[in-house]
Design a protein around this nucleic acid. Structure first.
Length: 867
RNA sequence: GCGGGCGUGGCGGAAUGGUAGACGCGCUUGGUUUAGGUCCAAGUAUCGCAAGAUGUGGGGGUUCGAGUCCCUUCGCCCGCACCA
């Protein structure tokens, strides 16, 4: 046996053995309890990055741990293989998106395998293959039949030079990323899924997700954005283009007397009607269309408005007329696309009124405030109604109810619930995605493709030499007969949002028959996913869409679960320091060297380098560390160990050379411990162990004797404590704490004198580290002469009685400050410990004759003397 | 603009409202080794010879007791519906 652990040999050996034995193939017929551990599947961008390694290592530790606990574990891997980068590669490098993607998958699969993940590769899937997306098309048609899919007009970013639709990320400072042209917003007819039908249940369902991070639930709650309010109509003083009223929604009916204007969005029918006769209005609307479609851009843009000259009557104050404006900060997508402005009590309205000289009326004051004080800044909080006719003196809540009641009695408005959530637009004007299984017929309209014609296979004979979607100009694929009337039809050339692909892949992992999307009974054996792990960047969209899709399938009777992910964990990013040359070029870690005094220099030129901030690894900042060479150099277990050890898993992890070396050293340290323990269990006690004293054992038996003492209670306790701590930490996904507990155990075993307890502890240690460092654990397991593989071993048990100490150290505080500690027998009664505490020299000195006014005793923990 | 998160030694971080700094990295000193790496031992929040004092971004509060709870403030990071 070599004196060093050889990761290169061990990694390959055990990976082959696991694959041969089918160790990680999930068996739906197993009698064991089943669990489903899933990490968010990767987009095949080219190579595995450190974020993947971290994500999949965490999931792997849990999956291996659950196996050891006796679960039948489903832990699969696949590829989120449709998406824009493949098309970008096609445009920039002339490769085909399919070829590019599949080559990436091959590379990344091989890279993942080298990390020794306990994955069931027999269930591998890629969303870009017809045997995945064909089933997705069937599900889309099911939802279409159920009325959960519809068409409507929606705005996209339009690049007028490239004549193509742009994603938000392709719009840089309001310009197309390739053409540099100013981006416009343009309306297209697109497919939508009725996620808003599920708004209430998606919100309610959050209450059942107690194994999700609070912050993610809160983010989803805010995203759904339920608000109670009132909808009502302002009557126009004079009809405009056939429109005689403006519907508005408000969450603050109590401020209705503070209204000083009505604002409609630039896309509102009334705005369009005015624009037909007023060139100024048209120009303003056109101006509003410039710029991107993101909320951040729209809401941070300077507030601008156009006075239409129209007026509406105030419903509760018929003598008053309010001007109607078109305003760029009013969103057509939210509420009714129109609102009434209350400058005194809304920050946006305040800014707007200030700019255009509109009236500012205070109608809410804090309790005891001055109703006639000038309004220097908007007060958005609740209070007491003033200057509000019949509402005066009412609280904001009472006033709101009173206004709603008045409106409902008068028949001009009603209390209503509004959601911020909008329906999910799934049409993408792109090639590399799931073809939408619809045929457009002039006579019949859009018609679903008959099920027996699925899958609608994406044609691969396309080119990207011209901007736009190649499906639109494909010579044959588009043109088909209408399935209903047989007349000339045209395939839908938009493809589905890739979020649709990721909304049900976990179901397909659980069950993958050839003739349908999934088998319900088989899928339900595994679902819901017990633990889902991925980046927090998916906290809203992906997770909400997957929840919706699951509920939609449940509603149409396809599956018996409503929530797909029982447990959720969002892990932090992997970061690295950045470096910049003095002339402003980003430099990679391999382009710089340490110079003296903590300074850094550029290797090529020897000139000084500025250390930048620690940031998420990204190509543009050149601070990426490719995992593969690291695995080559240090082995899979050291990389895995590092990924788990330094930071809490939900926080960012900074990559550092020193830490990976520390991890690699630890792997060797465990190897040495096990190897020497194997020798020590006979008479072969190493001189070093003789020399290093034990901190725990009276050294009365071992020295100079061939007899290894049978038991060492102190080691037994440490082992039990470590076993409990590591198990609890992994169970709670606190991997850094599990690692710390391993370090503690290894440290004390290294110091402990040989004994049967120590031998036993070393044998157990091998199982304790096996979820984290499986290759090392297998080598040690074999070295210790065990049969089979540690991958199939059970998680160690321990005697809970060993966790309890007979003695406890109690803190003694005076006025809350620690002054002394004392070690006493566990369970000692309050009076006794109080007397001991008051008698301690340090305490007597501290009290200096003062009397203890009060003494707080927390049994077995502390005494606090209040003097 | 809206929403979310995070601030603890030189660094990553521990800490059911109850002994702040577990564990790791780094560093210091000593030892083993032909040398270096490895490995072993001791030490390492700050100030102080010590006794002791101070200390969890700042300020305020609740409490016998606050890193932890509340208010406020500053700084940084992330998301915002066509990136995945």
């Amino acid at each position: 046996m070599s004196d060093r652990f050889d990761p290169a040999a061990a990694d390959a050996r055990w990976q082959a053995r696991w694959a041969e034995a089918g160790s990680f193939v999930a068996d739906a017929a197993s009698a064991k309890p089943k669990t489903f551990v899933l990490e968010m599947f990767p987009y095949p961008s080219g190579r595995i990055h450190m974020g993947h390694v971290r994500n999949y290592t965490m999931g792997d530790v849990l999956a291996r741990f659950r196996r050891m606990q006796g679960f039948e574990v489903l832990h699969p891997m696949g590829w989120d293989a449709f998406g824009m980068p493949a098309e970008n590669a096609a445009i920039e490098r002339g490769v085909h998106p399919g070829g590019w993607t599949r080559a990436n998958i091959a590379t990344m699969r091989a890279q993942l395998k080298r990390l020794g993940f306990a994955l069931d590769w027999s269930r591998e899937l890629a969303t870009c293959e017809p045997d995945y997306y064909g089933h997705e098309q069937a599900l889309f048609l099911d939802l279409l039949d159920a009325g959960l899919v519809y068409r409507k007009e929606s705005e996209v970013n339009w690049d007028p030079v490239d004549a193509t639709v742009l994603a938000n990320e392709q719009v840089i400072d309001g310009r197309g990323w390739r053409s540099g042209a100013l981006v416009e917003r343009r309306k297209l007819s697109q497919w939508f899924l009725r996620i808003t039908d599920f708004a209430e249940e998606l919100l309610d369902g959050l209450g059942t997700l107690d194994l999700w991070p609070d912050k993610v639930r809160l983010m989803q709650e805010n995203w759904i954005g339920k608000s109670q309010g009132m909808k009502f109509a302002f009557a126009l003083a004079a009809p405009e283009g056939g429109i005689d009223q403006v519907d508005v929604f408000t969450t603050r009916p109590d401020t209705i007397f503070g209204a000083s204007f009505v604002a409609v969005s630039a896309g509102h029918p009334l705005a369009l009607a005015v624009a037909r006769r007023d060139g100024g209005a048209q120009a303003f609307i056109d101006e509003c269309k410039t710029g991107g479609t993101t909320a951040a851009e729209i809401e941070t843009a300077e507030k601008r408005g156009f006075d239409t000259g129209l007026e509406v009557a105030h419903p509760l104050d018929p003598g008053r007329r309010l001007p109607v404006w078109i305003a760029n900060f009013v969103l057509m997508e939210y509420g009714t696309g129109a609102l009434f402005g209350v400058p005194a009590h809304d920050t946006r309205d305040f800014e707007f009124a200030h700019k255009y000289g509109l009236e500012i009326r205070r109608v809410v004051i804090p309790q005891g405030g001055d109703p006639d004080a000038s309004v220097d800044e908007p007060e958005t909080g609740y209070g007491v109604a003033v200057h509000s006719d019949f509402l005066d003196g009412l609280s904001s809540e009472e006033a709101r109810d009173a206004v709603i009641r008045r409106a409902e009695d008068g028949g001009w408005g009603e209390g209503t619930t509004q959601y911020r959530l909008r329906d999910w637009g799934v049409s993408r004007q792109r090639y590399w995605g799931t073809p939408i299984p619809v045929i457009h017929c002039e006579a019949c309209g859009p018609v679903g493709v008959p099920r027996d014609q699925l899958p609608i296979v994406l044609p691969e004979d396309v080119t990207f030499d011209v901007p736009g979607n190649p499906l639109d100009r494909h010579p044959t694929w588009r043109d088909v007969a209408c399935p209903t009337c047989g007349g000339a039809g045209r395939r839908e050339t938009d493809t589905l949002d890739t979020f649709v692909n990721s909304s049900w892949y976990f179901i397909r992992f659980a069950s993958q028959p050839g003739n349908k999307p999934f088998d319900r009974a088989e899928a339900e054996q595994w679902l819901p996913v017990a633990q889902y792990i991925g980046g927090v960047e998916h906290a809203i969209l992906h997770l909400l869409y997957a929840r919706f899709w699951t509920r939609a399938l449940e509603r149409i009777g396809r599956i018996g679960i409503t929530e797909p992910f029982k447990g959720l964990f969002t892990q932090g990013m992997v970061t690295h320091e950045t470096y910049k040359s003095l002339d402003g070029r980003w430099l990679g870690p391999d382009e710089v060297d340490d110079a003296s005094g903590g300074e850094m220099i550029e290797r090529a030129t020897g000139t000084a380098v500025a250390r930048g901030r620690i940031e998420k690894m990204s190509k543009s900042k050149k601070n990426v560390i490719d995992p593969e060479p690291i695995v080559d150099r240090y082995g899979a277990d050291a990389v895995r160990w590092f990924m788990l050890s330094d930071s809490p898993p939900e926080r960012d992890l900074e990559w550092s050379e020193a830490s990976i070396e520390g991890a690699a050293r630890f792997v060797q340290r465990v190897w040495r411990l096990v190897r020497e323990a194997r020798g020590a269990s006979g008479s072969d006690v190493t001189p070093q162990m003789q020399a290093s004293g034990s901190d725990v054992t009276p050294r009365t038996q071992a020295s100079g004797s061939d007899v290894t003492p049978a038991k060492n209670p102190s080691v037994d306790k440490k082992l039990a404590r470590a076993t409990a701590a590591i198990g609890a930490a992994i169970d709670g996904l606190a991997f850094n704490k599990a690692i710390a507990a391993v370090y503690e155990l290894v440290g004390s075993l290294e110091k402990a004198a040989p004994s049967a307890s120590r031998d036993e502890a070393v044998r157990v240690l091998v199982r304790l580290i096996s979820p984290m460092a499986p290759h090392l654990a297998e080598e040690c397991w074999a070295m210790l002469g065990n049969d089979g593989m540690v991958a199939d071993a059970a998680w160690p048990s321990f005697d809970p009685a060993l966790l309890v100490d007979d003695e406890v150290t109690i803190a003694i505080q005076v006025n809350g400050k620690l002054r002394d500690t004392v070690t006493v027998a566990r369970g000692i009664d309050k009076d006794t410990i109080e007397a001991i505490a008051l008698g301690r020299d340090k305490i007597v000195r501290q009290l200096d004759g003062a009397t203890a006014r009060k003494v707080i005793v927390v049994p077995d923990r502390l005494v606090n003397i209040v003097a």
